[in-house]
Nucleic acid binder design. Structure first.
Lengths: 157, 157
DNA sequence: GGTGAAAGGTCATTAAG
DNA sequence: CTTAATGACCTTTCACC
């Protein structure tokens, strides 16, 4: 779907202050509360807003090390590898990709030493031919959606 | 910090049904409302819970293509490159890493053709020597934290 | 717009480390 | 002794009809 400028401002507001209610949002946006409620309902039913799950900081949880692993998979073993990786709690997300590797996954670990254990567990599986790991040092741009939302709203307004 | 079993169950509950209130959560967990409130406050003040921002589906927003780009940077140009990438709305996150590349960023685009435009904009900057891009086909494991939270809670209980 | 229901705060009491 | 949980009460605020 496409969003208009009001949707964009609403999303931006929610991203900045997630716990404000519909009423407060309507005040800030200068529209009726029914309008905000209708927009919110539509954004959720169209899937633009998936939900309002808690953003958990894995570092604060005791897993300060993040890494990305590129995996090369044996032909026809994709499904097995996916199932294997899904059982590893330290695998936060997994993508299948084009390019040199076949899969890319985001890992966390308790320390650099612990990362070795995680990688061993990840690659200790028959279908995985090779793995190359990049350890994250800094995160200059944390996951963000506001600039994109702004652009999407601008382009449809 | 470390979380106990109750924190773990609370996080799991919030991840599954983010819009339940403190009162409902206290019922489900079988503890007093004040306890849930105290735990929530602590999880937020210690940074385990960063916030409750809306999870925006970039696909539903009109950007169904996701890619990861590995960038190689000229010595000493890191700060400039970071600043440059921060101005591109389609750059959803950026990490500096060890390994063959120097940076890894997550991109989205309106189509495969549009991805070319995004990549041109990303790499059209003096400090970037080389870029290799992997287009995401499937996402068998979407970003998740519940299994990790479960493990963290188990290990401290 | 009105109303029933929570959130959020405070308190004294009790339990547990 | 310190920290945490509990249930009670209160006021404000919001969500829903």
């Amino acid at each position: 779907m496409s969003i208009d400028e009001l949707d964009g401002r609403l999303l931006e507001l929610l991203a900045g202050e997630p716990r404000i209610g519909v009423l407060e949002a309507s005040r800030r946006l200068g529209v009726a509360r029914g309008t905000v409620q209708a927009r919110l309902d539509r954004l959720q039913s169209t899937g633009v807003i998936r939900g309002f799950g808690p953003d958990v900081d894995t570092g604060a949880l005791g897993y300060p090390v993040t890494a990305f692993a590129t995996l090369e998979i044996k032909q026809g073993q994709g499904a097995d590898v996916r199932a294997h990786l899904a059982t590893v709690p330290e695998v936060l997300e997994l993508h299948t990709t084009t390019g040199h590797g076949d899969m890319l996954c985001r890992l966390v670990a308790r320390s650099n030493a612990d990362l070795q254990r995680v990688i061993d567990r990840v690659v200790g599986f028959d279908g995985i031919v090779r793995a190359s790991t990049a350890i994250v040092m800094e995160n200059p741009v944390p996951l963000r959606i506001v600039p994109l939302v702004r652009q999407a709203a601008r382009e449809s307004g």
